[in-house]
Amino acid sequence: MAAVATARPQQAQDRPAAQQPAENPIDRWNRMSPEERERELAKLPPARAKEIRQRIRRYNQMHPEEQQALRQRYQTFSQLPAEQQQIVRQRWREFRQLSPPRRIAVRREIDQIRRLPGAERQARLNSEEFRSRFSAPEQQMIRDLSIYLPK
């Protein structure tokens, strides 16, 4: 039987229970027995199953605090309306299709815009400089990701 990443994410023990984000499906996956995990992975093509094992291993190897923050962000994201979640996923797919230099530019812009207060953010998105630096699809990508992604 192929080895599956079994390391369980460390919990922030000192965090009060009320502040603990809800478990995500990966946390629940980690609680399944190796037999159960392998049975589920066996339903997928071997290459895809292998990729999932590697991705789970990388998630489980994250620093506990970083993992906890990500868990919190996932919880916030999963509470968004389904349509908004779909928009973010779609923009993410489009983002990954960009060339590396454009990804850098778009990502920096998203990071900067997300740090701005609401009014300044809107002004930035409507500015001439913004429109001249980014294509229409990139502008939409930046708008949607900077608005809907949890901080």
Partner: peptide, 26 residues
């Protein structure tokens, strides 16, 4: 055995979401 089964495709979708959130951590 946990008693609760998470499907592999559900795990994959969650990993996609986590990756997206991880990349844009702000």
């Amino acid at each position: 055995p946990s008693g609760e089964i998470v499907r592999a495709d559900q795990v994959e979708r969650t990993l996609d979401d986590l990756d997206l959130l991880h990349q844009f951590n702000g």
